[in-house]
């Protein structure tokens, strides 16, 4: 839809989406009024007088576009001036206020919404699914197609930065003439951009020795602190222990008893499958030793982490619920 409203709010944490929204408004305004004056002002440190200057009717008429960026940093007087303007907007002027999300100057946004401003939400893309959809969209809008495994590989390798993802997607489309598959991605992008301690912990808990060691190496390579990896492993083990130590399997009830968010309980339930109580007890001990090791008790924290991961995976394999079935075969 063409952005035509005269009051607009662009709000959200995602910088790329904000600047795109502003660019879309600018393009629409210029398409309708090629002679339009464009003013772009940063709210931080902007004197209200200067704002009044650009908001005041022009001597020569004609449409004007005023973009005020970073209004979350606006001083009180400026916010009041903007709110005042929103109550009686000029029909020949398009005002866009750009807010980076959060609680600061929320009242200003409310006033704009109440005045009937059009709102562009630019929230941070937190889930991997959203990021994948973003990549697909990027590729499509630059006229290409991308396979599902290629999307996954690209998101893995590039990470959560939308600007980087967008640039990578555009580059791949122009390099490969439209059709992108996993091999094409692998020619230019490899590795794991977003490996945290939790990635390692997840793989450790499901008993994936090779996968967890690989994730560990990536994490250390990327500069994740040893302590964070150790804490994530300890947290994973204790959550699994907590969940499987209770008789109930109802996630809602567990979440209430353990005071954890339901998604965490569900994840821990999935991870604790294959663990026995005895195994979890041993793993808790390993996690505690590891915590001391990464805080200076061991000569090499790298080695301590690797050893602890191997030990936990081995404990799961030896004492786990599934192990007897496997050995009986």
């Amino acid at each position: 839809m063409e952005p035509t409203s005269r009051l607009r709010v662009v709000v959200g944490e995602e910088e790329l989406l904000r600047s795109r929204a502003v660019a879309a408004v600018r393009a629409a305004v210029l398409a309708r009024n090629p002679q339009a004056e464009v003013h772009e002002l940063a709210a931080a440190g902007l004197p209200p007088g200067q704002l009044a200057d650009v908001l005041a009717p022009s001597l020569f008429g004609g449409h004007r576009l005023v973009v005020v960026t970073g209004v979350h940093e606006a001083a009180g007087a400026l916010a009041d001036a903007l709110t005042g303007y929103a109550k009686a907007p000029d029909p020949d002027l398009t005002l866009v206020v750009v807010h980076a999300g959060g609680k600061r100057n929320e009242a200003l946004l409310k006033a704009f919404r109440a005045a009937g401003a059009a709102v562009d939400e630019c929230p941070k893309l937190t889930s991997a699914g959203d990021r994948a959809a973003f990549v697909r969209n990027e590729v499509r809008s630059s006229g290409g197609r991308i396979s599902a495994d290629a999307v996954a590989a690209l998101v893995d390798a590039v990470g959560a930065d939308l600007r980087a993802l967008s640039a990578a997607a555009g580059q791949l489309v122009s390099d490969f003439g439209g059709s992108i598959d996993a091999d094409a991605v692998a020619r230019f992008h490899r590795g794991q951009a977003e490996v945290s301690g939790f990635t390692v912990a997840e793989r450790v808990l499901v008993g994936d020795r090779a996968g967890s060691l690989e994730a560990l190496r990536w994490a250390l390579q990327r500069g994740v602190a040893h302590v964070l990896v150790a804490d994530a492993i300890a947290d994973g083990v204790r959550t699994a222990a907590r969940v499987s130590s209770l008789a109930s399997t109802n996630p809602g009830e567990l979440a209430r008893v353990l005071k954890m968010p339901p998604w965490k309980v569900k994840k821990a339930q999935a991870q604790s499958r294959g663990w026995s109580i005895e195994g979890l007890q041993q793993a808790l001990r390993v996690a505690a030793e590891l915590n001391a090791d990464v805080k200076g008790a061991a000569a090499s924290a790298d080695y301590a982490l690797e050893r602890a991961i191997r030990r936990i995976v081995a404990i799961r394999a030896q004492t786990g619920r599934g192990s007897r079935v496997r050995s009986g075969r």
Binding site: R238, A287, N291, K295
Partner: peptide, 9 residues
């Protein structure tokens, strides 16, 4: 060592 981790062990 984090107290919680140590005491649980």
């Amino acid at each position: 060592v984090k107290p919680r981790v140590a005491v649980e062990a």
